[in-house]
Design a protein around this nucleic acid. Structure first.
Lengths: 226, 226
DNA sequence: TTGACATACAAACATATGTTCGTGTATACT
DNA sequence: AGTATACACGAACATATGTTTGTATGTCAA
């Protein structure tokens, strides 16, 4: 008797989000996370609609259990994913923001706990440079200003948060005097710092140490066409 | 560079239970649930061993998040368990060779059958462009000749084998007359083909269609520093 | 109008659940 | 003897998270 009652736009949204979230993170979202992402102000409304989805046969809930959600039917309008296959996967790294020439990198206080609105990127173990996933984060590159470092618009940069660097390492640095963020190879010289682009056709820049705040070390870059 | 730490019996048990639980219920267990089922008296001990599993590379945790567990590697000795069929690892793509300016790309007859233990790269699903991993292969870039396409020495290029391309797509092409392999954006013009570098500072080249054998379409690029 | 019903909200509530800390007990090595 | 390390325990702690309640707003039909 479970009828195919028409799902409201909101309920469809919720289903889609739950599926996506579970695929990305490996476990279902909380009621509050659903509310945030689906623009629902009250947890009780989320709860209400979750029960509607249960009635409609799309969802299964475990009472009093945190994240006790399981999608048990295909979502209308969404290509059916191999549901259980999405549960375990490769390491995920928090995609915490973007990096552009004209703006500083703003990092959440605690990357590991920054769970709200963010996306996650799967990153193969080999590209984490041996660091723990929890101290690593990812940024989306905006603009073509990093072209001298062989990094282009849309690239995803994987970094480890740190404020110092060894010679030769690729770093993300904020230059306060220039109000500029840059990605370059780091070299400490006599009394200045040389920031060397990866592409030899471009010239290095020299900055005073006081004008160079290292935000992180670049571990890897991933680019997807199409 | 894999840490092959021996897991204690207890830790193996935990992994097995977590996997089983997640498969059955759709979400991971709590620390206390793990403790009950694995005969561990204190939640702190579970916590302790979970962190060990993270160190060993089997698990990923989301701090302060209830049920924030994700198994990211096969469980030793338990892989063939039917219930674990639900566990999906990152797609692996055959690393079949290298690509350099001066030499053609030599492709094995059948990529899917080119199975060598070591010559694989893990590639996140999002970077496969929707193609099946069996029709996709990877090449290591040698030399700085692709610098105009924002690709440098050591980069790993993920491609799909195909001999035609749509405008705008990034392709790997062999130019017989020039004895040269190149990676560029493909544009079919009136009676020639324009191969456009990604970096606008470099000029496109125009080739006769007869002098342009498309070997594959570039899906993504992955670069690791260090 | 009325009332029934579906949906939405905010705040208070109860507890499920991760974290931390002090301690204990082995084993191994100096 | 020590000292270090790995592992285990229990209890207190902090908060993440599901649940409930009271109320408000819309629509639709009698």
């Amino acid at each position: 008797m479970k009828e195919f009652k028409k799902l409201s736009r909101r309920q469809q949204n919720m289903l889609r989000f739950m599926s996506e979230y579970t695929g990305k993170r490996g476990f279902p979202p909380t009621i509050r996370e659903i509310g945030e992402r689906c623009d629902i102000a009250s947890t009780s409304v989320v709860n209400y609609n979750l029960n509607k989805l249960v009635d409609a046969g799309y969802l299964q809930r475990s009472g009093k259990v945190s994240r006790g959600l399981r999608i048990i039917a295909d979502i209308p309008g969404v290509a059916p994913l191999p549901r259980l296959a999405t549960i375990a996967n490769s390491p995920r790294v928090a995609l915490v923001g973007r990096i552009a020439a004209g703006e500083p990198i703003s990092l959440p206080e605690d990357i590991a706990h920054h769970i709200d609105e963010d996306d996650y990127v799967a990153v193969p173990q080999e590209f984490l440079g041996g660091f723990d996933e929890n101290e690593v984060f990812a940024l989306t590159v905006r603009g073509d200003s990093m072209i001298d470092s062989m990094i282009q618009d849309g690239d995803i940069v994987i970094l480890r948060q740190q404020s110092t660097a060894d010679n030769g390492e690729m770093v993300a640095a904020w230059l306060p005097e220039d109000s500029e963020t840059t990605l370059k190879h780091f070299y400490r010289e006599a009394d200045s710092i040389r920031l060397q682009p990866a592409n030899a056709a471009y010239d290095p820049i020299f900055v005073h140490p006081a004008n160079c705040q290292i935000k992180g070390k670049v571990l890897s870059v991933m680019r997807s066409y199409g």
